[in-house]
C-alpha cells in the first residue's frame, strides 16, 4: 500500500513538472504566428534606401564629435553613439569634409581640419567588414531579433552594399588632392580613446572638386 502511494505521488509530481515544462501547438499555427524566415537583404535594403539617408543628413560632424568626446566622453557617447551588445566599443555616424592626402591599395588617407591643425583619418576602401555601419546607424534594435545570425546578416548586407554600390565609382574617380564629403561609421573604444589615424567605414562619398 505504501509503495502504491509513493508511486502515485511520484507520478503526480512528474505530471505537474511536465505540465509546467512543455506546451503543445499545431506547427502550422506556430509558424504563422512567429513569421517567415528573416530576409536580411530586403531588411537591409529598406534600411539603406529609406532610413539611412535621413540618419546620414543628421550625422554629427567628426570634429564636433571629437570636441564633445574630449570634453565629456560619457555625455558624448550617450548622445552621439550607439551600441548593440555589451563591451567598450561605441559606434557613431559622422560626416566630414576632407582632403585626399594619399590613395593606398586598401584605404585612402584623409586630412581633416581640426582646431588649428590637420587630423589624419583612414577611410577603408577595400575591407568593409564588421558591424560598424549597422551599429552606427542606430536603426537596428537587438530586441527585435532572436539570433545573432540574423543580426550579422544585416551587417554583411550593408557592408556588401557599400562595397558594390558606393566604393567602385568613387575609387575610379578620386585623385590625390581632391576635396571630398563623407558620411561614415566610426568605431571608438571607450577605454582607449584616440582620434588620430582613426579608421572610418564609408556610407556615402562625394567628390566636391
Amino acid at each position: 500500500m505504501k509503495k502504491v502511494v509513493k508511486y502515485l505521488l511520484l507520478l503526480l509530481v512528474v505530471g505537474l513538472v511536465g505540465y509546467q515544462s512543455v506546451y503543445f501547438r499545431k506547427l502550422s499555427e506556430y509558424r504563422k504566428a512567429t513569421g517567415e524566415k528573416f530576409d536580411a537583404p530586403a531588411f537591409s535594403k529598406k534600411i539603406w534606401d529609406e532610413q539611412l539617408p535621413g540618419k546620414s543628413d543628421s550625422a554629427i560632424a567628426l570634429t564636433d564629435l571629437i570636441h564633445a568626446l574630449e570634453a565629456s566622453p560619457e555625455n558624448a557617447f550617450a548622445k552621439h553613439s550607439h551600441v548593440l551588445g555589451i563591451g567598450n566599443y561605441r559606434y557613431s555616424l559622422v560626416k566630414a569634409e576632407a582632403t585626399v592626402a594619399m590613395i593606398n591599395e586598401d584605404e585612402i588617407i584623409l586630412q581633416i581640419a581640426h582646431a588649428d591643425s590637420l587630423m589624419i583619418v583612414r577611410l577603408a576602401t577595400e575591407f568593409i567588414y564588421g558591424n560598424a555601419i549597422r551599429d552606427a546607424s542606430g536603426l537596428v534594435d537587438i530586441k527585435d531579433f532572436t539570433n545573432t545570425t540574423d543580426l550579422n546578416a544585416i551587417s554583411e548586407e550593408l557592408n556588401r552594399i557599400v562595397r558594390t554600390a558606393v566604393l567602385p565609382s568613387f575609387k575610379k574617380e578620386v585623385k590625390q588632392g581632391d576635396k571630398i564629403e563623407i558620411t561614415a561609421a566610426a568605431e571608438f573604444n571607450k577605454e582607449h580613446l584616440y582620434f588620430n589615424n582613426l579608421e572610418l567605414i564609408p556610407v556615402s562619398l562625394r567628390i566636391i572638386k
Partner: peptide, 8 residues
C-alpha cells in the same frame, strides 16, 4: 505530425 513542442 504538424506538432510544435514549446519549452518553458
Amino acid at each position: 505530425a504538424d506538432l510544435f513542442v514549446g519549452f518553458t
